[in-house]
Design a protein around this nucleic acid. Structure first.
Length: 925
RNA sequence: GCGAACGUAGCUCAGCGGUAGAGCACUGCCUUCACACGGCAGGGGUCACAGGUUCAAUCCCUGUCGUUCGCACCA
């Protein structure tokens, strides 16, 4: 049999196994299969991106699910793809051009798009190659790009359909405008940040010359676009002025070839104004503020746009034209001050919208844009979540989703970019009408003119993303893939794109497929650094997952995430924890090394994985570990069903490390080093089968090391990745060999060994020192068990002579520990000195006194201290129990088994204290 | 401003009506024939605070303080 190398070389094994998986076609899904389908759509990473920890977390979860379902016999499809990421990609290419002293406008649209495609051809695969390093088992042959012809066809069909329905429209609106990018962005792409600013109080002279109104503003430069001032209709201070005019400071009316004239703007009244804020007078700038826009519409005010597309002031700003917003603000304030129109300046904290892409301050900007009407689309999307057709996990996000849906505004989908799906709308130069069509039209559908020009803008990248669950599967064609895999099963993504993406997929899926795109949404949090800060380039605290994979292995990284994802919470990443899981990989590797060594002369049975050891020949340890394996399989399955990855991973971690390695392997050493026998062979078979299951159970979490180990196991099927995932139903025959009685037995053995070790440890008896132990069992059952396991206990406790008997003799100079085992209370660990907790208080119990003569070994004072400590602990317990049980109401009202359990515990504790006191007096005698 | 989540061991987090758990870190002992990326043993918490419900509250309710997130936004 092939043995394992001393060290697991993850770099080599990961590359080799991944290549093999791909060559074998294990990731491929089947469009026509009798197996049940299971599909996850990968949130398409940006082609410009490189793998970051957020992806790694997201994809670890998805791959774990896919691998788990694949092993469970599902026809799994993990559908990969990449996103053209309009703004990012365009920015990247523009930066390249800049190095060559070129601009996008300079080379023109066509050349620019060529350049961008070229860039995509060269760099677009980077992130998917990086995903492979993580072990992602996507069906790569199906990889889709959002600008592929097929997807573009879907986009056009959706656009045309919504347009015909009147749900897509074009209009002049106030939109969020990014100056550096020179494009509109959607509400969602605006991030509000608190900024320390000022509230300036400005005097607006009354037209009638009888003084002035004071207007408070945080943006004095927008004064240049004011077309009214507004007060509350009930405001006694200003009622008299409503309907009259004020003179707009600074600006003169720009009438060509006419003498400068002061601009008059009306004083209007609207209950929108808060009388208590500022001066109670608000300036209205309808073209540069969302609230003012509404007032402007309502009161039919003129809209004066004072900005250019680069957000510098335009000709309407008169002498301020050409200045940036910041410069204009400064100048306006200076000028106001010079004219004594500035009443005062107060510090003021305000929320300012920033462009999530460029970081620039977003300007409300009046322009022609395309919008998707949201009201009708939102209704069904709201309903499917309310009704539970789509389940959102964690549940608290359901409310967030529903709230957003209820206040949703129309979606601005046009972007003044070149890289993306160009809007399929053509303007007729002759009749000025719009033709919207799936295929490029040659003539105007209104007047037949061929004088058409296509809209210059492209669609918001999220528009194509919204179609992703069905466009990737072939829609609008009724493909087999679509029939098989739509609706998909689970959508896994960060909670930051719930609105951007998840909500819109739900709307589009319902509209165009008449069914939800997925039934389950699994949201996780964001990755943060160890101090809880966002990882970002500017902070320089980003960690490259590829560096971590290189250093610790992909498996360790995956497990770090999976062992720690909890219900949508942000994840503070720490390399130290990763190191811990790397150590676990090492542990698994070495445990396998031990096992393979112990199985060198093992005869591999014909039946392979189905081979069962003879029940009569396997040891209690074997029966116990199988019993625990069954429990682990059960718990892991239940946890995965409920997406509790951390619980599943935790169960496997502790089962493998603390039961299999710490105890089972130790127990087994004596059998395996003994001469061949039927018992030894049976134990070898058990070891081989249990290890086989452990490896398969771990596979979805840590695929590389498990595949590597699996190939070396004596008992195995072809490949771990496609082997069956063990669960208590499919694995019933083997698990039936596990015995609860054996578990109790082993618990007692563990308890005694721990008690001996505890005495050793606390008394600082060096491991080399010989000790003698006397065990006094409380009953025959315990006595029998102890007799059978005597050799193992001696080995693990490093005991020289080991006596079992009723006669305690003299306890003089002896250490004493008490071990209790509750029969029928499996699962609780047995601890020396009575740490045992009754589970339900049913069944009986065995107790054992462990006596270690200390004469000549140590200073007896240490042992006295140890016993005092134990008694103190027990006394505290007793006090609590007595207090409780002497409370009539407790006895009367509490559940029967609680009261009974307490009584039992009290009795036991009292007995233990008595024993310990007795031994204390003898120890001191 | 509205809504939500969270405040538990030094750190990161589980638990959520019956006497506090894990990992890492820490202390002591040990190079025992799978593993020092290891073994064994151990120390450490009035479960933010104040009330209430209950026989019983870290867990349920109310309030306070603190942290974070989402939404809205007042010029």
């Amino acid at each position: 049999m092939e043995l394992l190398s001393d060290r697991y070389n993850h770099q080599e094994a990961e590359a080799r196994n991944y290549r093999w998986w791909e060559e074998q076609g294990f990731f491929k899904a089947d469009d026509r299969s009798t197996k049940p389908p299971y599909c996850i759509i990968l949130p398409p990473p940006n082609v410009t991106g490189s793998l970051h920890l957020g992806h790694a977390l997201d994809q670890s979860i998805q791959d774990c699910l896919i691998r788990w379902k694949r092993m469970n016999g599902f026809n799994t499809l993990w559908q990969p793809g990449t996103d053209h990421a309009g703004i990012s990609t365009q920015t990247v290419v523009e930066k390249e051009l800049k190095k060559e002293k070129l601009t996008r406008q300079g080379i023109g649209r066509e050349k620019f798009l060529q350049r961008t495609w070229e860039w995509k051809r060269l760099n677009g695969d980077r992130i998917t190659l990086q995903m492979r390093r993580l072990g992602a088992s996507c069906d790569w042959d199906r990889a889709v790009f959002t600008l592929d012809d097929r997807v573009s066809a879907a986009v056009r069909k959706v656009f045309v359909s919504l347009f015909r329905k009147g749900w897509i429209y074009r209009g002049q609106r106030l939109v969020n405008w990014s100056g550096p990018l020179q494009t509109a962005i959607s509400d969602l792409e605006v991030e509000y940040k608190q900024v320390k600013g000022s509230l300036w109080h400005i005097r607006y002279p009354l037209e009638n010359g009888r003084g002035h109104l004071i207007v408070a503003t945080t943006r004095p430069e927008t004064l240049l676009g004011d077309t009214a001032v507004c007060v509350h209709p009930q405001d006694e201070r200003y009622k008299q002025w409503v309907g009259q005019n004020v003179i707009l400071p600074l600006l003169t009316k720009s009438v060509p070839s006419a003498p400068p004239q002061k601009r008059k703007i009306p004083i209007i009244a609207d209950s929108y104004v808060d009388m208590k804020f500022g001066s109670g007078v608000v300036k209205i700038t309808p073209a540069h503020d969302f609230n003012d826009y509404k007032i402007g519409k309502k009161h039919n005010l003129p809209f004066i746009n004072i900005l250019d597309t680069n957000t510098f002031l335009n000709e309407h700003a008169g002498p301020y034209a050409g200045l940036s917003v910041t410069e204009a603000r400064k100048k306006v304030l200076e000028d106001l001050k010079a004219q004594d129109l500035l009443e005062k300046e107060e510090p003021h904290v305000l929320n300012v919208g920033h462009c999530s892409r460029s970081g620039a301050v977003v300007e409300p900007f009046l322009s022609e844009q395309w919008f998707v009407k949201m009201d009708q689309l939102a209704v069904p999307a709201q309903r499917v979540v309310e009704s539970g057709t789509i389940n959102i996990d964690p549940e608290s996000w359901t409310k967030v989703y529903l709230h957003w849906m209820s206040i949703i505004e129309d979606w601005c989908i046009s972007r003044q970019l070149w890289w993306g799906h160009r809007i399929p709308a053509w303007y007729c130069k002759d009749c000025q009408q719009i033709t919207v069509a799936e295929k490029d039209p040659t003539s105007c559908e209104h007047c037949g003119s061929g004088n058409l020009t296509q809209d210059e803008d492209v669609l918001d990248t999220w528009f194509s993303s919204a179609l992703w669950p069905f466009s990737t599967l072939g829609w609008p064609e009724e493909t087999e893939a679509l029939k098989t895999f739509y609706p998909t099963n689970v959508l896994v993504t960060g909670n930051d794109i719930l609105f951007f993406w998840v909500a819109r997929m739900v709307m589009m899926g319902l509209e165009f497929k008449r069914d939800v795109p997925f039934r389950q949404v699994l949201l996780h949090g964001m990755i943060r650094d160890s101090q809880g800060r966002k990882m970002s380039k500017s902070l320089g605290n980003g960690i490259d997952p590829l560096d971590l994979i290189e250093k610790y292995g992909a498996d360790a990284l995956r497990l770090t995430f999976l062992a720690h994802v909890h219900a949508g919470k942000d994840y503070k990443f720490s390399e130290q924890r990763l190191e811990g899981y790397r150590n676990f990989m090492n542990k698994i590797w070495n445990a396998t090394r031990f096992a393979l060594n112990a199985l060198q002369d093992f005869q591999v049975p014909e039946a392979g994985v189905q081979a069962l050891p003879n029940r009569a020949q396997i040891s209690s340890y074997d029966q116990w570990i199988i019993y625990r394996l069954a429990q682990a399989e059960d718990r892991v399955e239940e946890a995965l069903e409920e997406f509790r990855f951390a619980d599943a991973a935790g169960e496997l971690y502790s089962f493998v490390w603390y039961e299999f390695c710490d105890w089972y392997i130790e127990f087994s050493k004596s059998v395996f080093s003994s001469p061949p026998s039927e018992e030894r062979s049976a134990s070898q078979l058990t070891m081989a089968q249990v290890l086989n299951r452990i490896v398969r159970l771990l596979h979805p979490f840590v695929p590389f090391i498990t595949e590597e180990i699996y190939s070396k196991l004596p008992i195995k099927n072809k490949a771990c990745i496609v082997d069956e995932y063990p669960n208590i139903r499919t694995d019933r025959a083997f698990l039936a060999l596990g015995q609860e009685a054996a578990a109790v037995e082993v618990d007692l053995v563990k308890g005694i060994v721990s008690a001996i070790r505890n005495i050793r440890g606390e008394n600082r008896i060096p491991p080399a020192a010989r000790i003698n132990v006397r065990i006094v069992p409380s009953d025959e059952h315990a006595q029998k068990i102890i007799g059978e396991h005597r050799a193992v206990m001696m080995a693990l406790g490093r005991v020289d002579t080991f006596e079992i008997g009723e006669d305690e003799g003299s306890l003089s100079k002896c250490a004493l520990s008490l071990v209790n085992v509750q029969v029928g209370a499996f699962g609780t660990s047995t601890v020396g000195d009575g740490g045992q907790v009754a589970a339900g208080g049913i069944s009986g119990q065995s107790s054992v006194r462990v006596i270690v003569p200390l004469q000549g070994l140590v200073d007896i004072d240490e042992e006295i201290k140890r016993i005092h400590k134990t008694i103190e602990k027990l006394d505290k317990d007793i006090a609590i129990l007595v207090g409780r049980l002497s409370n009539e109401n407790f006895v009367k009202n509490a559940a029967e088994e609680i009261v009974h359990g307490d009584r039992q515990q009290l009795e036991q504790a009292k007995k233990q204290v008595q024993d310990l006191r007795e031994s204390l007096t003898r120890l001191q005698s």
